[in-house]
Simulated scan of single mutants.
Amino acid sequence: MWGLEVFGFTALFSPFFLLFMLFIAGSYWLLTGPQRGRFEGSAPVSVGKQITFYTACFLFYLVQGGPLELLGHLMFTFHMVNMSISYILVPPLILLSVPDWMWRALFRKRFNPKTSPWMHPIFTAVLFNVLFSLYHLPNIHDVIMTNYALHTAYYLVLLIASFMMWWNVICPVPEYNRLTELRKMGYIFLNGLLLTPSCALIIFAGEPMYAVYNNPQVWADAMGYCVPGDPAELLKLFQNGPASVINLLPPLDDQQLGGVLMKLIQEFIYGAVLAYVFRQWFKRESKEDELPPGPLNRSPREGFQP
């Protein structure tokens, strides 16, 4: 049963969040277009990068403020798809689409990602994956989902941690790069391994673990994040909780499917990024092989010999 229209326009489309994302997209257009000359070393941004940025903004709105965000409060499967898009897909798209000269202007004289201990690859990998895994422990998940302030704060911290983790893979500014391509590939494998226990817990659980999707009262409290009004009134309309609105799968099957989709999406994205890094490595190695022999073209390992 689908009854999403009952929730109204505000719950389905989050107009204030939509305006915020339009502001972000408009700022990108302004700073990379008419106001580009204000940045030192600026250059035109390719159409591909622009499309990538606007696509990332659209996807983030869809899963954090659009209809998919509401569906994520009704089915665990949609919730896991939303988490995958928000923290595994959107950050690398943003990092790839924002030009290097804009990152330099942002960090200059304030922060150096290459030397900061907060951006050390091991720290960022552990930080993101621990935060993501802790969030999906049943008791912690239910508390965060039913507390508006905690929900907003945790999602913000998780988003920052995801950007920190992805920075060490994508690193759009060459002089801030900490890892070689080979180490980046190992780093991607490490992140995949660190996220596996959380997915396994969800996939192989023998019973539904999350009260938000199985207890109508807890669900009604959690819906306060995206549906204004008294949760008690919402519970009167939907006495069986989310099953009264959308009932596609039994709770356990929904939970397991969510875990499987999360792992599949993660593996697909990590695989695509792995291929991208390998391609960058291959291109660099090919260019070095094409250079004529000479003292100026020796690699740093060989050193300079007059």
Rank of each mutant, 00 (worst) to 15 (best):
R284Y: 14
A43L: 04
H120P: 12
V212C: 02
R110T: 02
L96A: 08
F13L: 11
R178G: 04
Y61P: 00
F304N: 07
M164I: 01
S198H: 15
H136W: 02
L68V: 14
H136D: 01
L22R: 00
F304V: 14
I203W: 13
R284G: 05
E69L: 10
Q266V: 10
D254V: 00
D254G: 01
M83A: 07
G41T: 04
L252N: 01
L127I: 11
L71N: 01
Y225H: 09
W166G: 03
N214T: 13
P117R: 01
N112G: 13
L235K: 13
L150N: 01
R108L: 08
I265C: 02
F60Q: 09
L264N: 03
K263Y: 08
M223P: 03
Y210S: 10
S162P: 03
M75I: 13
F58Y: 04
L274R: 06
G41M: 08
L31P: 07
V63Y: 05
S42H: 06
R279P: 11
L131F: 12
R298K: 03
T196P: 13
G224M: 09
A211P: 10
L237T: 06
A275F: 13
Y187S: 03
Y61C: 00
P44L: 10
E207V: 15
I140A: 06
Q35T: 03
G258S: 06
L182F: 14
W101V: 08
Y270I: 15
F58W: 00
R183K: 05
T146R: 14
L201I: 15
L159G: 05
F111C: 06
F123K: 13
F20G: 08
G241I: 09
Y210P: 08
N147E: 08
G241S: 09
R38T: 03
L68N: 04
G303P: 12
P174T: 05
I203Y: 15
V245W: 11
L296R: 01
L261N: 05
T32F: 00
N168D: 04
D253K: 03
H151D: 01
M119W: 09
L70Y: 13
I51C: 04
K287W: 15
V212K: 04
Y61V: 00
L159T: 09
G65E: 12
E5I: 10
V273C: 11
P216R: 00
L182Y: 11
N177R: 07
L193D: 15
L95T: 15
P117I: 02
P113N: 02
I170M: 08
F53P: 00
I188A: 11
Y270R: 12
F23Q: 01
I170T: 05
S84P: 06
G294F: 07
A205Y: 05
N112L: 08
T146A: 10
A149I: 04
G259M: 11
A272D: 12
M145D: 13
Y87W: 14
